[in-house]
Computed example of a mutant assay.
Amino acid sequence: MVTLVRRSPPDAAAEVHCTLALTAEERSRSRYRLTLDDGSAVHLQLPRGTVLREGDLLEAEDGQCWGRVVAKPEPVLTVRGQTPFDLLRAAYHLGNRHVALELQPTLLRLSPDPVLQALVEQLGLLVEPEVAPFQPEAGAYHGTHEH
């Protein structure tokens, strides 16, 4: 069994045995089984409501640092606008639909959805389907990155 260890900021010098490339959905599960690249199986059991982020460290039951979380590239829609206000407006409309959304200074990212893509394009923004790491905001009720 592997449990989550929070280090703020993540300890770049920590010795890790592997990295776990997980999609946004996988990083939001609290209990699941993973198969590593070497074929071995790992059972993650994290506190309910935990959302793993890029760079989080995982610790084995014996207390040894075991792995580092990496945001796995996955299909996303990347949204860009002419101005910051364009992105703000799109984020407002997507937020009203409770869409998981990654916010960056020059772009927004969301899971592929043709209806949402049409909505954003109707607002005059450029939407590009891509494969990229997806790190949506955890939400106001999840607090900060720390647990």
Rank of each mutant, 00 (worst) to 15 (best):
L52D: 13
L46K: 14
E25M: 14
H142T: 12
A24R: 04
D11C: 10
L22V: 10
E121T: 15
R31S: 15
L4Q: 11
L103C: 11
V99N: 00
G67D: 08
Q117P: 03
Q45G: 09
R80E: 14
L116C: 06
H145L: 14
L123H: 15
E121K: 15
H142D: 06
L107M: 12
L88A: 15
R89M: 08
Y92G: 03
L20V: 02
V131W: 08
H43R: 15
D37Q: 09
L123W: 08
R80K: 13
V120Y: 07
Q135T: 13
L4M: 04
A90K: 01
T144H: 12
P133E: 00
D37M: 01
H145W: 15
V127D: 08
E102A: 14
A21Q: 00
R68A: 02
V99I: 03
V42G: 05
G55K: 09
E146Q: 13
R53T: 00
A138L: 12
P133M: 02
L44W: 01
L34C: 10
Q117D: 07
A12N: 03
S40N: 11
E130R: 14
S40D: 13
Q45A: 14
A13L: 02
P47K: 02
Y32K: 14
L101N: 02
L44Q: 05
A12F: 04
E26W: 00
L94S: 00
L20I: 02
P47Y: 02
P73E: 09
L107F: 10
P133V: 02
K72H: 07
Q64C: 09
M1Q: 01
V99E: 01
A71K: 03
P47W: 01
E54I: 03
A12S: 10
V70H: 04
L103D: 03
A91V: 00
R53H: 08
L88F: 12
C65W: 09
E54F: 04
A24K: 06
R89V: 04
Q122Y: 12
Q135M: 06
V131C: 05
T106Q: 09
H98I: 03
L125D: 11
H142R: 14
D11M: 13
T78G: 09
P136A: 07
A90E: 02
W66C: 09
E59A: 15
L119P: 03
H93F: 07
L57W: 05
L123G: 14
A41H: 08
V120W: 06
T3G: 13
G95C: 00
R53F: 06
L119I: 11
E61L: 00
V70K: 12
R48Y: 08
V69E: 06
L36T: 13
V79G: 02
D56T: 07
R80V: 12
S111F: 01
L88Y: 13
L44F: 08
T23Q: 04
A100M: 06
Q135H: 03
L57S: 13
R80I: 07
G139H: 11
A71Q: 01
Y32D: 15
L87Y: 03
G63Y: 04
V76M: 02
D38R: 14
